[in-house]
């Protein structure tokens, strides 16, 4: 279980997170929604330690994430980045097997390659993609490779940062389905940030809305349309007027 307690973060005068409280039970898929620039990425990166919060506590299974063995902590995570964040200098299979080629999870090259090709197949890519470089792939394919890399070491927790941004609606649908299937079959805990409502409905068990530095509303995805929260209502209906406009 991931728990955030009164997490705050500011960049200069810009107070991005003003006391975020959120719990993500083990094995569930939490999607965090919110407008651009509301701190969704900062929140996600705070859990991973890529951003250090100014105040508050983040725990994983009851333990503060800033203490203990960092390698062992990170080994439990996989992450799909918004732009894929694939390493340009490495081939596709070397990207996917990155964790399996070095560090505590290192294994023989042939075995790592075999696992990489298996994971590529799982995300719908053929083995002939394995020896290509990321720059030779389309945006959708890069996203799939990023997804394959995120699941290569069978993590317990997977983070998805804007998984469908920049993709056409059909490819976005494919990625959403893949994410849902993979999270279900791995039994992983998932945390996704997005402002794509189609993704929310396809991926989420629970939804949390981040606005003005705090969680405005959280609940099961089935309650999203009857949340009774004016911020959530405006966001999911995509209305230009409402309480969110007043702070823009």
């Amino acid at each position: 279980m991931i728990e955030l307690i009164s997490v705050e973060k500011a960049f200069g005068d810009n107070h991005v997170l003003r006391g975020v409280n959120l719990s993500i039970p083990k094995g569930t898929s939490m999607v965090i929604i919110g407008g651009s620039g509301t701190g969704k990425s900062v929140l996600l990166k705070s859990v991973l330690g890529l951003v250090r919060p100014d105040a508050g506590v983040i725990t994983l299974d009851g333990k503060d994430v800033t203490t203990g063995d960092r390698d062992a902590f990170l080994a439990r995570f996989g992450m799909l980045f918004q732009g894929g964040a694939l390493f340009d200098s490495l081939t596709v299979w070397q990207n996917v097997a990155f964790r399996l080629l070095r560090g505590s999870l290192k294994r023989p090259v042939a075995e790592a390659r075999e696992i990489a090709i298996e994971k590529l197949r799982r995300v719908g890519l053929k083995p002939d993609v394995a020896d290509r470089f990321p720059a030779e792939l389309s945006g959708g394919m890069q996203k799939r490779v990023g997804l394959a890399r995120a699941i290569a070491a069978e993590p317990e927790i997977i983070f998805f940062d804007e998984p469908t941004t920049g993709l056409d609606p059909i490819m976005a649908g494919v990625i959403n389905e893949l994410i849902r299937e993979i999270v279900d079959e791995m039994g992983a805990t998932a945390m996704t940030i997005t402002h794509d409502m189609t993704s929310v409905r396809a991926i989420a068990d629970h939804v949390a809305m981040l606005h003005d530095g705090v969680i405005q509303w959280t609940g099961p995805v089935r309650d999203l349309d009857q949340s009774g929260d004016p911020f959530v209502d405006q966001f999911i209906s995509g209305r230009a007027t409402g309480p969110i406009e007043s702070v823009r």
Binding site: D71, M79, F81, G83, L86, F87, F98, G103
Partner: peptide, 16 residues
């Protein structure tokens, strides 16, 4: 460029 495209963050999440 690696930093701008989050490849450095990706390295960290891959325990590197």
């Amino acid at each position: 460029t690696m930093k701008v495209t989050e490849q450095i963050d990706a390295l960290v999440t891959l325990s590197t």
